[in-house]
Write a protein that binds this DNA or RNA. Structure first.
Lengths: 337, 337
DNA sequence: CGCGTTTCGGGATGGGCTTTCCGATAAGGT
DNA sequence: ACCTTATCGGAAAGCCCATCCCGAAACGCG
């Protein structure tokens, strides 16, 4: 109502005829609660004046905030969006404010952002996304992670290990292995694998798990092709593999978006799925539930993982590792005639 | 390195043998720059100690922050993710930190969150998503918006009007009208419309635009069915419409996710698209690029819109309205045999 | 060589709030 | 009725930093 008048606690206190101490006690409901009558007066004054506490000042005074950070590679990627959503829901329940940043897969940005969070005295942070195994940036990240934890803030990582912080790990190997066995059980035999960047642990684990699952069934892949961890990466890898004339009957892409890209590549060439080629992915992204044929995949409880990550990050304590089970979901894209 | 030692600017100053004033001047590069030698010393001291400025204190001291807020209905919805992404990129370029919240379509949450941003003394905020026309919550939101602006922060709205703030408005009516004419041009005649909640301006505008476009072609819709603005809403509305036995040959859903839901409903009933029924959506969500048949839709420059929203929000100034043109994209889902 | 002027470092203040510590008052005990 | 305890409000000391302002030193010029 009043133009640009920063109402302070002092204003409220004066209007209510009490000291700032009392006003503060009333409004933040802290340790000691003043007499009801005073509470009344203070509260009345507060909203008569339209008082809004200055969160910065509060944070400074009690040297702690209610801000938590989330780092994702790319918020447009539904995989990250799903996990971030879980984190945000959990944060909302705890009345925490969320700072979110897309690192655009840039390690420098990631580090810089973590530093910003430290500067903000964030209470905790959740880092989502597969760690690249580039030794140098790994070391620098580890260092910043160290500083972050040292500052007293909590930290949890999703899908990345090797850092001295809480870790949420989807069971990529087991899930992929299970998928391989399921597909073999359906009768598929000649597998092509569309792998992600070798530097991404997640991509590697899923590939390795799949290989292990195939081995369990006495099989080995006909071809392996690598591409970006994205839709376009999947598209390109599938084309590449086809161009090489690989004799495959089923494709496994290490994540859903790649799988969907691959399906588009196949469609562009008039290759029927699953008639001539089966396709499977990993993650069970909700947004892709409606692609046709329905994508066989491995379901991860993404939102759950996000929730849990926040919990762990806030709790603090000794670094722990929690593994989330993955579950094979068979759909039309690998149905046998 | 040192455990839990909050190193302050004073520490740095002392170690460097200068005053805090000097240290501050060196480290934030402000107006006056101290002599090179001192700069050297200060900087050395700073990173020897692993100094991180306390953003809260800085904010308090200069009473301004580098935090901006984003409010979306649901970050998992790729529509919001795309716009938010644009905002975040623009923020990143300006070295601004982003606080993001999903309101889960709850007006109360939205208001509360806006208040939090105010408490944080956020420099600006971007609200994304269609305003509901419920008079009461509208009024309360307007009030909070007023307070927010009054606090000196900038604000921009995407896809919502009626607030005294900068507004980014996709040209829903024109786009939908154009789509209707295009579809009519292709030979479709008996249209069914899958509308969103009547309270959502965006949904209404698109429906009305489509109606207008049809009228231009001397047509009117055979049936109109309403559902949630979500995938499931589209699915349900399509089923409903079909159950009513409406004699349609083409479905227009007021957004892509609804359209995709509708396509799934059709598929479940063995209705061929576009053989027996054409389907069109709105937004041109990137993640849905790979659904098959490719979805005819109206493209919105979502990332652009997000970017621009942030710019406007930061610039401040008199409320303005910017309209972004929408562009019809014809794909296989409405191809005529 | 003296004066005015500019440059530059430091002391001190303030920004808004929380919290410790004190003193005062009311309640309780004998 | 007096002393002990608990109760409760207020004054003030921070929290960490930016910045205003002052004084001193360096510089320029006549």
């Amino acid at each position: 109502m009043n133009l640009r008048a920063p109402v302070t606690l002092l204003d409220v206190a004066q209007r209510a005829g009490v000291s700032v101490a009392t006003a503060s006690r009333v409004l933040n409901g802290g340790d000691r609660v003043p007499r009801p009558e005073l509470q009344e007066r203070v509260r009345a004054a507060a909203d008569a004046l339209g008082y809004t506490p200055n969160a910065q000042a509060q944070a400074l005074a009690k040297s702690s905030t209610n801000v938590v950070g989330i780092l994702v590679h790319d918020i447009e990627d539904p995989y990250f969006a799903a996990i971030a959503n879980g984190v945000m829901r959990a944060a909302d329940e705890r009345n925490l404010l969320v700072m979110l940043a897309s690192t655009f897969r840039d390690a420098e940005r990631e580090i810089a952002y973590l530093a910003s969070l430290r500067a903000q005295r964030a209470r905790a942070a959740v880092m989502i996304g597969s760690r690249r195994t580039d030794a140098e940036s790994l070391a620098r990240t580890a260092s910043e992670v160290g500083s972050f934890l040292n500052s007293g803030a909590g930290l949890a990582l999703v899908s990345q290990s090797g850092m001295p912080a809480h870790t949420i790990e989807p069971d990529n190997r087991a899930g992929a292995a299970e998928l391989a066995r399921s597909l073999a059980g359906l009768g598929w035999r000649k597998f092509g694998i569309l792998g992600g960047p070798e530097a991404l642990a997640t991509a590697r684990d899923r590939r390795d798990g799949f290989l292990a699952g195939l081995a369990d069934s006495g099989l080995e892949p006909v071809a392996v092709e690598y591409g970006d961890f994205t839709r376009d990466g999947g598209y390109a890898a599938a084309e590449e593999l086809l161009d090489r004339g690989a004799d495959v009957d089923c494709l496994f892409a290490v994540n859903d978006v790649m799988a969907v890209g691959a399906m588009s590549a196949l469609r562009a060439r008039g290759i029927d799925v699953p008639g001539r080629l089966g396709v499977a992915g990993f993650d069970d992204i909700a947004t892709l539930r409606d692609v046709w044929p329905g994508l066989t995949t491995v379901r991860l409880p993404l939102e759950q993982m996000g929730r849990r990550a926040l919990e762990l990050a806030i709790e603090g304590g000794e670094p722990s590792v929690e593994t989330f089970k993955a579950e094979v979901v068979l759909r039309e894209s690998t149905a046998r005639a």
